[in-house]
Design a protein around this nucleic acid. Structure first.
Lengths: 232, 232
DNA sequence: GTCTATAGCCTGATAGAC
DNA sequence: GTCTATCAGGCTATAGAC
């Protein structure tokens, strides 16, 4: 918040003491740089392969210096988690707002979600695959994902209201079904097609086909959909 | 193969030198024990958390002793991968053979596959999620997965022949669609519902519903199914 | 096949000078 | 906020005695 300090100062601040907010900004830039490098390391060594020593090496500082910015390795993971959630939420919301409400918004949003995940593989795995057993995201870092679910649920409700999907899509289950579909596509792409973009390969092109199954999963004309039942 | 040795010996073998095949059997038992402990460790520390030192500790030997059985940590991963593939293939094949050919066999097989994965989470992740970047399975360890795909493809072909699915299910794509569905269910269950069994929770009960969508994905009465098309 | 001993690497984290 | 130095521990893997 500018103007908090009582002593005004010129903008390029060549005074003896740097303006406090300038120092703070510089600090934030360093933090962002640390996180960027951490993402880079995770991409090469795997999400678990992140080490502060490697980050320090690439940043050109000694490992202890990083502890001025993050109190522990887990705090770095948490910051990565939060930043990733916010970025992903932005991508989802933006794509949803550009499409018609209801099913189109849902499909566009998930399409953007999948695209984001493939462009940020390491972070996406940290967010949705939980590959670091000793890391549990803090409630603050986890919060955006609640908003994400709410957006999808609202889009499903719009689709029901618009007659694009049957009333079954209002159930809790519908959100889980949709997230399971996108999750399957991304898992297969990650595991079997490293390096390919969204829309390429054997798996991500399946996403539109899966979305096209939603009306069959939640038929408009009443009556429960058929379910295959496993033998006991 | 018994009888290979020229010198016959009593079965409980208290002679000076143990029978060679007895020694070999004992060695195989030790190898199995090492792999069992490795699975246990992965379950607690994550797939990446496997370390030979920890295995040795639990086995009650010193770490160097393990190198008499496996030349490296990656060789242990590879043995785990192969054993897991074979176990999983057995579960799949067995369940398929107990159901009617075609769609029932496919659904039963995948049901058993999912059940196996949830009962062997750590190994399943090693097989299908590839969480250890530095580990690439050997061709021999990977071979059973080719058989697995062949089984599923054959069941889909049977389903088409029986009129349960349309001809689209004969395409390569159909196997990928099915594997994507099961993969999504398992990913969500692993990440969000540790400790739950197959059939419990929010995600694994979705599997029958997903299978029930296959006839909609590959309709019998010709004509391409609708596809949602992302905006450019 | 088991052990001791050890090389040679890595890590996270802290203390304290500047 | 940076550094040096260091602790305390982990790991894979090898050499060589028994």
């Amino acid at each position: 918040m500018p103007g908090t300090e009582a002593t005004p100062q010129v903008e390029d601040g060549t005074a003896n003491a740097p303006r406090p907010d300038r120092r703070a900004r510089r600090r934030l830039e360093t933090i962002e740089e640390i996180l960027d490098i951490a993402v880079e390391v995770m991409g090469e060594e795997g999400v678990n392969g992140l080490s502060l020593a490697e980050v320090a090496r690439r940043l050109g500082v000694q490992p202890p210096s990083l502890y001025k910015y993050f109190p522990s390795l887990m705090a770095v993971y948490d910051a990565l988690f939060l930043r990733g959630q916010l970025q992903h939420l932005d991508a989802l919301r933006d794509a949803m707002s550009r499409a018609d409400p209801g099913l189109p918004a849902l499909c566009s949003g998930l399409d953007a979600s999948g695209r984001w995940a493939l462009e940020h593989r390491a972070v996406a795995q940290l967010l949705f695959w939980r590959p670091v057993p000793s890391f549990e995201p803090s409630p603050e870092a986890f919060a955006p994902s609640i908003e994400m679910v709410a957006l999808q649920r609202a889009a499903l409700a719009d689709a029901v209201a618009a007659g694009q999907l049957g009333p079954g899509a209002n159930a809790e289950e519908a959100v889980y079904l949709v997230s399971t579909m996108i999750s399957g596509v991304l898992t297969q792409a990650f595991a079997n097609e490293p390096g390919l973009q969204w829309g390429e390969g054997r798996f991500t092109p399946l996403f539109p086909k899966l979305m096209a199954l939603l009306p069959a999963a939640f038929p408009v004309s009443g009556g429960p959909p058929a379910v295959w039942r496993p033998a006991p």
